[in-house]
Simulated assay, not measured.
Amino acid sequence: MSIFDHVSLKTTRLEETQGFYEAALAALGINKRFYVEREEGGVAGFGRERVELFIGGVQGPEPTPVHVAFRAKNREEVEEFHAAALTAGGTDNGAPGIRPKYHENYYAAFVIDPAGNNVEAVFQGPA
């Protein structure tokens, strides 16, 4: 179980960023569960069984980028996430593979989303 109830990312490029997450997270079984328009900008909610990620639009300069990692069920999901994220407009920040500096079974891929965030999919079990 996650230690977080939810995470909220903000962007001035909501439409593009929302589309990126819709495509990239589908590979991990995470889907857009809602979208609402608000005065300050729209908000999209993503999750598997419940909403755990919010992508919200903001006015002004692009917020400071963050790093967020999504748990994959296996190495294949990590690879599917990476491919889908690149197709959806992400920039490669680390192809799927073992990251031995973390531990021997840390299999991850990294992509920069349209808002500049470092997005990771990771599977930490044996192959």
Rank of each mutant, 00 (worst) to 15 (best):
M1W: 02
S2Q: 11
D5Q: 13
D5H: 14
V7W: 09
S8C: 13
L9T: 03
T12W: 02
R13L: 14
L14C: 04
L14R: 00
E15Q: 11
G19K: 12
Y21R: 08
E22N: 10
A23Y: 00
A23E: 14
A24G: 12
A26Q: 15
A27C: 11
L28C: 06
L28S: 05
I30Y: 05
K32H: 01
R33N: 07
R33M: 15
F34Y: 15
F34V: 03
Y35S: 09
V36M: 14
E37S: 14
G42D: 06
V43R: 07
R48Y: 01
R48W: 00
E49M: 05
E49H: 10
E49V: 02
V51C: 10
L53W: 07
L53I: 09
F54S: 02
F54D: 03
F54P: 02
G56T: 04
G57V: 05
Q59G: 00
G60V: 07
G60D: 03
G60T: 06
E62V: 11
P65A: 12
V66D: 04
V66N: 12
V68K: 06
V68I: 15
A72R: 06
K73N: 15
R75M: 11
R75L: 10
E76N: 13
E77S: 09
V78T: 12
V78Q: 12
E80V: 09
E80F: 14
F81M: 11
H82N: 06
A83L: 12
A84K: 07
A85G: 03
L86V: 03
T87R: 15
A88C: 05
G89N: 07
G89E: 05
D92Q: 04
D92W: 00
N93F: 05
G97L: 07
I98W: 04
R99M: 03
E104S: 12
E104K: 14
N105L: 08
Y106N: 10
Y107L: 05
A109Y: 04
F110A: 07
V111L: 09
I112F: 14
D113S: 13
P114D: 02
G116P: 02
N117S: 11
N118W: 10
V119C: 11
E120Y: 08
E120L: 04
V122Q: 12
V122W: 01
